[in-house]
Structures are given as C-alpha cells and as structure tokens.
C-alpha cells in the first residue's frame, strides 16, 4: 500500500442527516474509495446517510465518547463546545466560499479548532465542506427586511440561525427539515430558508413561488471525529484522513457551487421566480443579531485579520 499503517485494520463511519443522493455523500464515497486504495484496504470508510446513527448531536456525543464515527456538522453546533466558533454561522459573516476559506487561515480559527481538540475531544478533519448559500423561499416576493415582517420561516433551532433570521425580519419557526413541504402546503408556515440543493431535493418548488436571493448564510460544514478514536490511529493514517477530507471538501465545494446554479435553473423551470433583494439593507439588519449574541467585537477583529472592509 502507498500509505503504511501498523498492520491493523481500521474503520471509520461517516454520519450525516443528509440523504444518500446529496453531493456530500457522493464525495464521501469517492473519498472512501481513495482511502481504501491508498491503505491497501486497511482503513475503510463507510457512509451512513439520513441520520441512521442518530441526530447530529447524538453522533457528536458518540464521537466524543470514542465511537469510530465522523459527523457532518455546522459551526453552530460546535459553538456549544467553543462559543466563538459560532460566529462563522451568522448571517452575512462571509460573502462567499473564498472568504470563508480565508477565515480558516486566521489565528482566530486555528486557536478555536485547537480548543475543540484539546478541551473537548473533538478533532476537526476539515471544515471546508460547502453546501451553498441560503436564501429565503416564500410565496410573496421579499425585497427588503420589512417584507419579512410576520412571515413564518422555518429555520434550524440553534441561536446563530434563529436570531439571525429574526434580525432579518422574519418569524423563525423551528421544525424538522423534512416536515417543511407538508407544513408549507398546509400553511403551518409561510416559507423556509435553505440552500438550493436542499430546496430542490425537497421539491419546495411545488409549494413555494419565490426564491429571494438574500444569500444570508454561507452554509459551511465540517467533518469532525472524536479525539479518542483518532488517537488510536497510526500517525500515517491520521495524516491521510486529514489530507483526504481537506481535498475532497474542496472538490465537493466546487461541485456544489456549480450545481447551485443548475438547481436554481431547474426550480425556475418548475415555475419559481427569482427575486433580487436589497442586500445592503439585509446586511444592515443582520447586525442586530451580532450585538445580541455578543459577536460584534469578534467580527471586527476577524475582518481586520483577513483585510475585509
């Protein structure tokens, strides 16, 4: 084998709530194939889509406890362990994928990732898995924050999300993503905010009319494993996993960005309308959430480090 271990066999399970058809899962399969080849089958990677091993929170707990499992997670969940990381998940923190990548070169990021590993037993394999920008999807056009007043928008529950969505003018409603289609159809909610891959996958175009291109979240995910299991690996395998997850994250991100436009086109073809929004007004509105969660100073410091504004 190209990468030699200690002769023992290892297995890593990759868990996610995403469906098997999602580009991430396809990325994991590609990665699994390469890892198997490069280790002569000594290190195998198996994929568990659709939350088969439990909710993301459950699986993070499993990883910390020592199960051989990696989880797809956003920055918000990591903020439970190291609060400052949560800023990456705030509205309009970054304008695009490149900018997000720049943040990961900062000392701010490196310090917090170290804290995750040393104080919380969570090892980041790579945090460059990009799922696209999130937009508001509604049944009435939204151009400025005021248009969202009283509009019930489904959003994930973590504070970084719900406070941001509230700051942008909407009424955040928490429910499972898979309930959204029925909930919209049955008017239990008025819309949702999501990235195109998820929106298209759930066929929201059958029940919602407008894609309001707010791009308020740059949905960045990472893959984490437990330090407990990771430290049982020979150093060569550790390095291999870090390398491959970083590499595949980049490849998949490029695919997702390309596919986002395709998905948008398909949703338009199904009858949705794209609405261009007043971005400056939304950005301004988002600041309230930074103040509320105590991230305002932090953001200034990071922007300075990456030379933004």
């Amino acid at each position: 084998a190209e990468v030699e271990g200690d002769g023992k066999s290892y297995e890593l399970m990759v868990s996610t709530q995403l469906a098997d058809s999602h580009p991430f899962c396809q990325g994991f399969y590609a990665l699994a194939k390469r890892v198997a080849e490069r280790t002569g089958g000594k290190l195998t990677v198996k994929v568990f889509p659709s939350a088969q091993l439990g909710s993301d929170e459950d699986v993070i707990e499993q990883a910390i406890q020592g199960v051989n499992v990696a989880v797809v997670t956003d920055a918000g969940r990591m903020a439970n362990y190291v609060k400052n990381i949560g800023i990456v998940g705030m509205a309009y923190f970054a304008d695009n994928y490149d900018e997000v990548m720049k943040v990961q070169q900062t000392n701010f990021w490196k310090e917090n990732v170290k804290k995750l590993a040393e104080e919380n037993g969570i090892r980041v394999l790579s945090f460059n898995w990009f799922d696209g920008a999130r937009h508001f999807l509604t049944n009435k056009p939204v151009k400025k924050p005021e248009d969202l007043k009283g509009v019930r928008i489904r959003t994930p529950g973590a504070p970084a999300w719900s406070r941001s969505v509230a700051a942008l003018g909407a009424t955040p409603v928490t429910m499972g993503w898979t309930d959204v289609y029925n909930a919209v159809q049955q008017k239990a909610i008025d819309g949702c905010e999501a990235q195109h891959s998820a929106s298209y996958g759930l066929r929201v175009y059958e029940v919602l009319k407008y894609i309001n291109k707010t791009a308020h979240f740059q949905l960045l995910n990472g893959l984490i494993v437990g330090e407990k299991w990771f430290s049982t690996l020979p150093a060569s395998y550790q390095a291999l996993l870090l390398e491959e997850f970083e590499k595949q994250g980049k490849i998949t991100a490029a695919e997702v960005i390309e596919k986002s436009d395709v998905f948008e086109g398909m949703m338009v073809k199904e009858g949705m309308e794209v609405v261009e929004v007043d971005l400056a007004a939304f950005k301004k509105a988002s600041e309230a959430a930074y103040d509320e969660l105590g991230f305002a100073e932090q953001r200034k410091a990071i922007y300075k480090e990456i030379g933004k504004e």
Binding site: E57, I60, E61, I64, Q65, N80, N120, P156, G157, T174
Partner: peptide
Amino acid sequence: PLCISNFKRQFQNITLSY
C-alpha cells in the same frame, strides 16, 4: 458519567444542557 462528560451539549432552541 455521560451526563457529566457531555454537559456542554445543548438543546436545539433553548439554552439548557441536554
């Protein structure tokens, strides 16, 4: 021990340890 070691895990919508 699970309760103690993973006290940082939070609920979805409220600030309360899982």
